[in-house]
Design a protein around this nucleic acid. Structure first.
Lengths: 348, 348
DNA sequence: GTGAAAGCGCTAACAT
DNA sequence: ATGTTAGCGCTTTCAC
């Protein structure tokens, strides 16, 4: 070959070949410099770096992905991005991942296994590197069968059944006990708990914590109503409680959205919070802190959960030997304005 | 070459070569079949399709991206994903894009130009196909300089200055007028408007609409306070209004979050809504509809905005000749529980 | 209508 | 320490 023709550099992103010819070295040397490979003479490295700077060369992630199989793309599976818990989690995940130049794709599963599968199949083909699973559906098996390398997965928000996969969750059981004991300490005995769907492990753990704390008190009467994490379901359940023969003096929502819904229902009934009835949530979502409500809640440290999940995942992705990480974050009771010492004990 | 060695098919995703050899045709033919190229005999097509089904072959998006420069990845730029407007938009964008097998990456810019740039530079190198810009910062120039092909961009939520780029926005000016006229019709004359940042065009349009409607009434007194779209700023501004010498009988928040914040502030002051003071928002965010508040608001049809933005973008991406689309969605007044006919006109 | 072959931009053996 | 080269899986001329 007498003449290796390359299109001119103008109007085209510079490639590794351009850098190599500019610096007067081979492409492998450039590649080594770019990847910080040690086997490069300092002088050569400097020359290459100069060419890189001159041309403003940046390696193509796509070409890299083709050859390495790694795309620096992570998926975050959430139940419903319009539930305020998830945006907050997403923000912290995205921020932490960005530090290591990972891109996060948020996948709204609506807690439907079929959606989980659809997303994963598409993204895996696209070369997805890893998954943070924060949705709460019964889709663990689907996920783990699609991503059989468990190093690529971290569960958060929910605790997985599998023992061989990493997770970061908050201490749901302990948090619920703490909150319930606080309400019991305030004099409440009839306490209503608005639960989440039975398939959501984080919700059932909270319910269990509530029950455990209540059963330790001889004259405590636990009430439980069904909810589905939504504001609407919280309102409905609160109405049910108050329409019952034996209405509670305090209500706990399994998450903040439900508690906010309950708050609305109570307002509609002209019940004042906390004077007439105490109310508490679970999550520590930002909106619950505003003066609108000032909701007492269990802070599950969402930001930390997201950050930690990313750190674990990225570490796993880059280490051959893998031991599943199991992090349980202490949850913290945030006492705000919707709870108070019981003023008008109901006699029975 | 006597012997073309390929690793065995087991444990490895099937490639186009596997399909070709299975079907007994060349890779180009397989490629034609996959891309629905017409130049394939029906018989051949069937044979190839059989091999594809047999092997469960799916073309590699990464390899395709390398050769075509297209990744089917879209970015959605938002100001702050924890502001409930954006998750709702994101959901509709994601859903619509998914129909055409596009993946959406949500980028939280915090309305900082530097963040916009950071995201775009990273994603463009990753082969980003297009951008839906829904954040409201002064970053139009940065975006358009980074993505000089305007077919790849759609603005939404905000109206761009550039005349050569597509957008889908709601009729902010008209919606604000409609809302203001409604309040005037209810007898309100002193109306407070809690605005957004001056750089946010959607906010200034709403403010202009408010002013226009107010100035058409001889004895109407517009009050304006600064806000930044956040719940907190809404609460603060409402306090300022009510501490003023001439408090309004109705307050409009430039978005629902601000109105919700104002609602909290008013509750704190033991003012009942709408009996003591009327309150309205803008956006039609879901949370504002719950019984907690039942906020009167201007619905800007978020879902439709997102859907339409995606449709326009995808169409532009696939047509060589490009005429910018300019869609203005009618906004709709949603009268709910926080506004009512003025009961106790203040005399002046 | 079909096939051969040249890349796309990079990494990783392997050779020197 | 550096260069050569064979791919990664696909699309796309260009022959036939």
């Amino acid at each position: 070959v007498l003449c290796v023709v390359r299109k001119p550099t103008v109007g085209r992103a510079p490639t590794i070949i351009d850098v190599a010819s500019t610096a007067g070295v081979s492409v492998s040397t450039v590649s080594r410099v770019v990847r910080n490979h040690p086997d490069v003479r300092e002088e050569t490295r400097r020359a290459v770096q100069e060419a890189i700077d001159l041309l403003n060369y940046r390696p193509s992630p796509i070409a890299r992905a083709l050859v390495s199989g790694q795309t620096r793309m992570l998926a975050l599976l959430v139940s419903d991005i319009t539930n305020p818990f998830y945006p907050q989690l997403a923000k912290s995940v995205e921020k932490e991942a960005g530090k290591d130049n990972y891109t996060v794709v948020i996948c709204n599963t609506d807690d439907r296994t079929a959606e989980t599968r659809r997303y994963l199949e598409r993204l895996l083909r696209q070369g997805l590197d890893g998954v943070i699973h924060a949705a709460v559906a019964r889709d663990e098996a689907v996920l783990l069968s699609l991503v059989d390398d468990h190093r690529r997965v971290v569960f958060t928000n929910r605790r997985p059944k599998s023992k061989s996969v990493s997770f970061v969750v908050s201490d749901n059981h302990g948090g619920a006990m703490q909150l319930t004991n606080y309400l019991l300490g305030q004099g409440h005995r009839i306490i209503g708990f608005i639960s989440g769907p039975a398939f959501a492990r984080n919700a059932t753990e909270r319910l269990d914590g509530f029950r455990a704390a209540m059963s330790a008190h001889s004259n405590a009467q636990p009430l439980v109503a069904d909810g589905d994490f939504s504001v609407r379901s919280g309102a409905q359940a609160a109405h049910e409680f108050m329409d019952g023969a034996n209405p509670p003096t305090a209500i706990i929502g399994v998450n903040d959205s439900i508690a906010l819904g309950a708050f609305g229902a109570l307002s509609e009934r002209n019940l004042r919070v906390p004077d007439d009835i105490a109310l508490a949530g679970f999550d520590g979502v930002q909106v619950s802190s505003y003066s609108l409500v000032g909701l007492t809640t269990v802070d599950q440290r969402i930001d930390e959960m997201g950050r930690e999940a990313v750190r674990i995942l990225i570490r796993q992705l880059n280490t051959p030997d893998f031991v599943p990480a199991r992090h349980v974050l202490d949850s913290r009771l945030l006492i705000r304005k919707t709870t108070a010492r019981l003023r008008n004990p109901i006699s029975h």
